[in-house]
């Protein structure tokens, strides 16, 4: 029984990281209908920026964190302005292709600046060490990622439900032209969406970097683990991203722990297939009514 709880807790923690990445993908899809393939590289860029602030400029931890997040925000704005703005109104697949090309370009740029080797943070980012409750241990790095994911979830849900900008974003997601006709600046919405998504991405990159170290070859591939989480929860749902991430994390670890760790890689996909067969838009996705 103790193991079951341990697996549950492991899954919850890891799910937090998946949830953060999934959140960033969903944010962009929700507003712009673009599936962002560059999420892994933006994640890594955020992690690298923090590392540079810590290792090259020797700034203390908290200001570096805030500064790095601000830079990530700016990078998101820049990406939207340069790479995605020209593609408004063009077929969606072209925009997706653009994110793909962007990810390759970013990878090259990161190799140029930071090289291909493995980089670790000079100091531990997440404060404290692991806690043990009863027989269950929670590692501090993952715990912080989980708490971050929860915090991001709460903030974003409030943002989309209650603030004017959030409502504008949801309106733009429905129909760009209708939104424009009511006076919403689609450009501003897109810019802010990408900026926010980059910020969330950078947070997940920093959490992962704290745990695993950062490397151009490996870190972007970690983002792949979040894809099933995104679809499980529904492509357009913020709660769905978090729930999807946690669900995938928990189920993965339960199956891996109780049945066979060999199955851990594909459990998310099998669960996904099963869910999609019964609920075609994911757990929390919007059901679209189609008309001819």
């Amino acid at each position: 029984m103790a193991e079951f709880t341990q697996y549950l807790m492991n899954g919850l923690m890891v799910g937090g990281v998946y949830g953060l990445i999934a959140l960033s993908i969903v944010l962009i899809y929700k507003s712009t209908r673009v599936f962002n393939f560059a999420v892994g590289d933006i994640m890594l860029l955020g992690g690298f920026v923090l590392w540079s602030l810590l290792a090259w400029l020797n700034l203390p931890l908290l200001p570096s964190l805030l500064f790095a997040l601000a830079i990530a925000f700016g990078i998101g704005l820049l990406i939207e302005r340069l790479a995605l703005r020209p593609l408004i109104g063009q077929p969606i697949l072209a925009a997706i292709m653009a994110t793909l090309a962007l990810s390759i370009f970013l990878k090259g740029a990161m190799i140029l600046i930071w090289g291909t080797g493995q980089i670790a943070y000079p100091t531990k980012i997440s404060p404290g060490t692991s806690m043990t409750l009863d027989t269950v241990t929670l590692s501090s790095g993952l715990l912080w990622a989980f708490l971050l994911a929860m915090a991001a979830f709460v903030v974003l849900v409030w943002f989309f439900q209650s603030t004017k900008m959030g409502l504008q974003m949801r309106a733009t997601a429905e129909d760009h032209q209708l939104a424009q006709s009511t006076g919403i600046s689609v450009k501003l919405v897109f810019g802010l969406t990408w900026a926010m998504a980059s910020l969330v991405c950078a947070l997940s990159g920093i959490s992962l970097g704290d745990r695993l170290g950062l490397s151009v070859g490996m870190t972007p591939l970690l983002a792949l683990k979040a894809f099933p989480a995104v679809f499980l929860g529904g492509l357009e749902s913020i709660p769905g991203a978090i729930v999807g991430g946690l669900a995938i994390g928990i189920l993965e670890n339960l199956v891996g722990g109780l049945i066979n760790p060999n199955l851990m890689e594909i459990t998310p996909y099998i669960i996904l297939l099963v869910i999609l067969l019964f609920r075609a838009e994911g757990l929390f996705g919007l059901k679209r009514i189609e008309r001819i």
């Binding site: 490996m218 970690l222 670890n253």
Partner: peptide, 19 residues
């Protein structure tokens, strides 16, 4: 026990092993 090249945490495998 095996773990994936993209896994960030092997607590599950470790729990099984330590038994």
């Amino acid at each position: 026990e095996l773990f994936g090249i993209r896994d960030t945490d092997v607590s599950t495998q470790l729990t099984r092993i330590m038994k």
